[in-house]
């Protein structure tokens, strides 16, 4: 099979985050900000917990059910926003949406090289929602604060 196209989607980095997700798990305490979101069209789910210190994301954890793209994206998102302020995190989310629309974006602003690997998703329209789920959940949770 010609895996030319596929390899632009399933990059090594993505499979690494999928198989070894960062920040996976749950906080024991009850005062973390939490949100559960799903993608109603396909059933992907994410459960996200944030611990804020003022308006800085001190720590974040997630668990989820979904495809490689949605879980890898969640893993990367948690890494990218940890230690950032809420407004920085929201700006990153907007940047990520632009990247999914195929726009040229400044990758440095993510402060996480791995995210670039998700750029290929923009060529697979049916999978964009998989990649944005975790980011949308993050927006919801910090906006509620």
């Amino acid at each position: 099979m010609s895996n030319v196209n596929l390899d632009t989607l399933y990059r090594q980095v993505i499979m690494d985050h999928y198989k070894h997700p960062r920040n996976k798990g749950k906080f024991e305490d009850n005062d973390s900000l939490t949100i559960e979101m799903n993608n109603p069209t396909c059933g992907d789910r994410i459960f996200l917990q944030f611990q804020l210190d003022g308006d800085t994301v001190e720590d974040v954890k997630f668990t989820g059910d979904g495809c490689s793209i949605s879980l890898a994206s969640a893993s990367m998102m948690t890494q990218a926003v940890k230690g950032k302020t809420i407004s920085e995190a929201l700006a990153m989310s907007e940047l990520f949406s632009d990247m999914m629309l195929g726009k040229d974006v400044d990758m440095d602003e993510f402060g996480l090289e791995d995210i670039e690997a998700l750029q290929g998703v923009s060529n697979f329209p049916a999978r964009i929602k998989c990649a944005t789920l975790a980011w949308k959940a993050m927006e919801r949770v910090v906006e509620e604060e």
Partner: peptide, 13 residues
């Protein structure tokens, strides 16, 4: 293999 990933790979075929 998650069913979305499966479906994407099959689609390329």
């Amino acid at each position: 293999v998650h069913s979305h990933d499966l479906s994407t790979v099959l689609d390329t075929e």
